[in-house]
């Protein structure tokens, strides 16, 4: 019983890890204050669920979840290329609401508020992932793989260009680099991993509806990224473990879920607020949010 609970938590941590690392790439390394990350997560979840439900093999849907999200990420970056700082934040926030409205209202496709049920557990051809322990294994591999790729990107010369854009975009352009294109890539990659995380979520819970992808869901992710520290992957990993586990004791105390939900949000929002007020660098960050 306890081991099932721990496996469940670890799976959630794995999914959050991918989500937060990918936001770190856009926000921490490129300086794109993307408040629309949840929208990519949603797009990935719906893409994967809809494809598998219509008979497409899991592994294809899984990759398509990332690719479709990346495409949306590219389009979002492309259309908001000229926006900076708080204007970009609001435009991306708006993107979350638009995707949410579509998930809720395009009932022919998404089944609206009722959501999509019966999303099959992954079937990898030779092996079928039925048990949660095995699913954890799959999530872990994906998370490690995501970490390695994002780490490779940020450590490469391309990653230095991203950081340079975060520090002073105009100066990068004056050095002759097309920053619009680079930002498009950054957001597309970020969206790709968010989409993959969405797919992992959909096939784990086997049910999705719009309420899992509301605007409020950005708060835990944003808290993790900022508390872990801007431009620190290590900090993000650590913060994901700590912050996902933090509200768990509430369950043991025996609060009903109608209390646990809001209290969880309160904890995350309060932590985010306090870190912004007193330690805007986060715990592992070297870079201060400008």
């Amino acid at each position: 019983m306890l081991s099932a609970y721990i496996i469940h938590l670890l799976i959630l941590i794995g999914i959050y890890l991918i989500l937060c690392l990918s936001l770190q790439l856009a926000l921490g390394y490129t300086g794109l204050l993307n408040l629309g990350h949840i929208a990519f997560y949603a797009i990935g979840a719906y893409t994967s669920a809809l494809l598998t439900l219509s008979g497409v093999p899991f592994i294809v849907s899984f990759l398509m979840a990332g690719i479709v999200s990346a495409l949306f990420g590219y389009l979002l970056a492309f259309s908001t290329n000229k926006l900076k700082g708080d204007y970009l934040a609001l435009a991306t926030l708006g993107f979350t609401f638009v995707i949410y409205a579509i998930a809720l209202n395009w009932t022919d496709l998404t089944n609206g508020a009722l959501g999509l049920a019966g999303i099959p557990k992954p079937d990898l051809g030779i092996l079928q992932i039925k048990s949660n322990a095995f699913y954890l294994f799959f999530v872990s591999i994906t998370a490690v793989f995501s970490y390695l790729i994002i780490n490779k990107i940020v450590k490469s010369p391309f990653g230095k260009v991203l950081e340079a854009i975060r520090d002073d975009e105009l100066a990068v352009r004056i050095l002759g680099k097309n920053t619009f294109k680079i930002k498009n890539y950054s957001l597309a990659v970020s969206a790709f991993f968010a989409g993959i995380a969405g797919s992992l979520y959909a096939h784990y819970i086997t049910f999705i509806d719009p309420s899992s992808f509301g605007f409020m869901q950005i708060i835990p992710i944003l808290s993790i990224v900022i508390i872990g520290g801007i431009a620190s992957l290590r900090g993000t990993v650590l913060a994901t473990f700590v912050l996902v586990l933090l509200p768990e004791p509430l369950r043991f105390i025996g609060f009903p879920s109608s209390v646990v939900g809001p209290v969880r949000q309160i904890i995350y929002a309060l932590m985010l607020l306090l870190i912004l007020m007193y330690r805007p660098k986060g715990f592992y960050g070297k870079v201060s949010l400008e």
């Binding site: 260009v161 950081e163 890539y185 990659v189």
Partner: peptide
């Protein structure tokens, strides 16, 4: 670029291979 080292600041100026995403990946 305040949060990069002096070396990285100068390396950025040299050429544009660093902007090639797939190559760097």
């Amino acid at each position: 670029f305040e949060n990069l080292t002096v070396e990285d600041n100068l390396l950025l100026a040299l050429d544009h291979t660093d902007t090639k995403f797939w190559f760097n990946l």
